[in-house]
């Protein structure tokens, strides 16, 4: 396998990165309202959301990718493989981030909600000044773990032809008949992508911790 072959594989990085970051961004944003709905006092909504979360998590990611690409994508909408994969992983990320946020919220003592109410803080201020900063702190380590898992899962998108790392690795192994070295390059690329994420998460967490313990 030549350097050019390795470079061809590495050119899948933007796709893997885009799919992961995009799905994570969708999940991070949508996860918040899902978490709120999951925690609402309005029982029918809560039950419905709990059911949806369980349903989304019950199916393997590859099935969601197929369902959206071949199901939605064939008849109603004309979805590109990338958009279909992004939608599937965005959906999965949303329910998982909702649960991560919920863990963050549960870590905040009920006394703080009461204190905020007794101090007459508005709902917006209670969230932005009190709850979200603390939730972020608790949610950060599991989010980092999750985003790395998401990146590895994104290899599934190769099955519908998204030209990300795994897809290109497979392509190259078929061209060169050097499966081992092709997938070794793929592996190195994944490691190179996940190390910075782990490092950023650890540094951020340390910083936040230091702040509270000062």
């Amino acid at each position: 396998m030549t350097g050019a072959d390795a470079a061809h594989i590495a050119m899948g990085i933007p796709m893997t990165l885009g799919l992961t970051a995009g799905a994570f961004a969708i999940g991070s944003v949508l996860g918040f309202p899902v978490m709120l709905a999951r925690s609402t006092g309005f029982l029918p909504l809560r039950v419905a959301v709990i059911a949806v979360i369980a349903f989304v998590r019950a199916l393997p990611p590859i099935l969601w990718v197929f369902l959206i690409y071949f199901g939605l994508g064939s008849g109603l909408l004309n979805l590109s493989p990338f958009v279909a994969a992004l939608s599937a992983f965005g959906l999965i990320a949303a329910v998982n981030m909702a649960e991560i946020y919920r863990g963050g919220m549960l870590s905040i003592s009920s006394g703080q909600w009461e204190a905020a109410r007794a101090l007459n803080l508005s709902r917006v201020s209670t969230w932005t000044d009190i709850m979200i900063p603390q939730m972020t702190r608790v949610a950060l380590p599991p989010s980092a773990t999750y985003v790395i898992g998401l990146m590895k899962d994104s290899a599934i998108a190769s099955t519908i032809g998204v030209t990300e790392l795994a897809y290109r690795g497979k392509q190259m192994s078929q061209i060169t008949f050097e499966g081992l070295s092709a997938f070794a390059v793929v592996g190195v690329c994944y490691i190179a992508l996940s190390l910075p994420v782990a490092w950023i998460a650890r540094t951020a967490e340390k910083k936040l911790r230091a702040k509270v313990a000062r």
Binding site: S109, G111, A115, A118, I130, K211, V212
Partner: peptide, 12 residues
């Protein structure tokens, strides 16, 4: 003004 048994300060 309200003062609680468990203080309920904002730790962050």
């Amino acid at each position: 003004g309200m003062v609680f048994q468990s203080f309920n300060l904002f730790p962050h």
